[in-house]
Structure formats: C-alpha cells, structure tokens
Write a protein that binds this DNA or RNA. Structure first.
Lengths: 116, 116
DNA sequence: CAACAATATTCGAAATCTCTTATATAGTAA
DNA sequence: TTACTATATAAGAGATTTCGAATATTGTTG
C-alpha cells in the first residue's frame, strides 16, 4: 500500500540523490547567478564533455535544472530558487559543522599536550 | 590539487547521499520532535531490524544523527536543527513542484478535451 | 552462570552509479 | 553535399549501495 507520505519521501530521496555528487553540486552552484551553456559549464568545471552531459541529464531528469536550446548551444539554469536556498542552508550547516570539528580537534590537541 | 571549494562540495554531496533514501528520510522525520530508541523507530517504520540498523549507521557516519546508550537501548536524535530546516525547505519545494505538476496535468487535460 | 532483549556487524547477491570510450544527433558554415 | 561545432546517448567495466539472513555484541535478569 503506497501513500502520500511514501511518495513524498521517495521524491525527497530522489532529489537528494540527484544532488549527491560533487560535480552536480558544482554545476548547480555555477548556475547560481543565471544560465550558462553546457560548453561554459564544461570549461569552468574542467571535466569531460560526456561526463558533464550525463550529470546534466541526471539534474534534468529530476527537474533541478531546465534547458533552452538556441542555435547549436544548450543553456542550462536552475529551475527553482528553493534549490539555491537548500544549498545555502547547507553552507551554513557546513560552517556550523566545521566549527564543531575544529573545536573537537582543539580539545583533543589539548588532551595530547597535557599527556606529555 | 584539492581546495576548500572541492572539500565543501564533497561534504555536501556526502550529506545529500546520506539522505538519498526514503527510509533514512523517514528516520530523520520521525526524530523531528525528539529522540527515539532504535526499537521505536523500527516499530514505526515497519522495517527489518538489520536494515534499520544499517540505515542508522549511514546517518551516524555522516553525523546526521547522534545516539545515546542507556541500559540496553540506544536513543537516536537529529544532531543539528539545520537538518530539519533542510527537510522543511524540501517540503516547500515539493509543494511548489506539485502545484506545477498539477497545473501541467490540467493543461494537458484541457488540450485533450479540446481535441475531442 | 545461562537465557534473553536490544542493537550492530558481516556476508553475499542484486541493483544502481560513475567513469571512459565510442558513436549519434542537430545546427551551422563552406 | 561535406566538414565542423556543440551536445547527447550507448555500452561496458568497476565501484558503491541495498537488502535479507546469519551472527556478534552488550546489557539485563533470573
């Protein structure tokens, strides 16, 4: 038996899966300030053309990016501003996380010094 | 050459990966209002004990949940409130997404009707 | 101690993901 | 048409994820 809750979780899981790769996160971040062509993305990220195209296909499949074809170029952009918002929260989370990790390392260091 | 940007993206990707499964999202959602024992989670989610334990291990490894052992039980809780915040944004994103999907379906439906 | 309860870990098979290489498609220009 | 540019897709190998079954660990109780 499948309910709305399950569908919602499935949806969220697929969304997270789509962003669960450094290259795809880099793509979305590059598109933060507006659209870029596939070629521009490839140049900025310094990755293989086929690889970039595959990652873009993943992001497209999950509706995280949309594309617009003009002449023989394809321009990509982030489909919804909330996606950028999620990444921003992640940055805050990362910083909070990092602070804690640094604090923990300092504490360990202190203990090490006392031991000597 | 590895820089902070890359580490940050790696970190974000691993975080997303950790949440990229319906069961793990369900776990975090169950822990939204406070800690629960592993047993309580298993009961609420209706999944295999070993499976739950494996998913909890993934969430632990990425510091998304923390645990506290008391007697012969283990109580889990979400480590950082920003994680809940991310899921909340996801809910908003989902709803925005759904509205668009419904709108699209209605539009298609309208076209279908006009055709007949 | 033995038996039990709660949870974690290991193992192996199936599914999924990621990368590189090769090829296909579509638009443009000569 | 042929050649070229930009992008997408297919195919296959290797890595990772996921699950259930079995087993291990740890704390409790009699």
């Amino acid at each position: 038996m499948i309910n709305t809750q399950d569908s919602l979780r499935q949806f969220k899981a697929e969304f997270f899966q789509a962003l669960a790769h450094p290259t795809r996160i880099a793509i979305v971040e590059q598109l933060r300030n507006g659209e870029l062509s596939a070629g521009a993305l490839i140049e900025r990220l310094g990755i293989e053309q086929a690889n970039a195209s595959q990652h873009l296909a993943v992001l497209r499949a999950k509706n995280i990016v949309i594309n617009r074809k003009t002449r023989n170029q394809v321009f990509y952009s982030v489909r919804h501003p909330l996606i950028i918002e999620v990444l921003d929260i992640m940055r805050r989370y990362f910083h909070a996380h990092m602070s804690e990790m640094v604090a923990t390392l300092k504490a360990i260091d202190k203990v090490e010094k006392i031991r000597k």
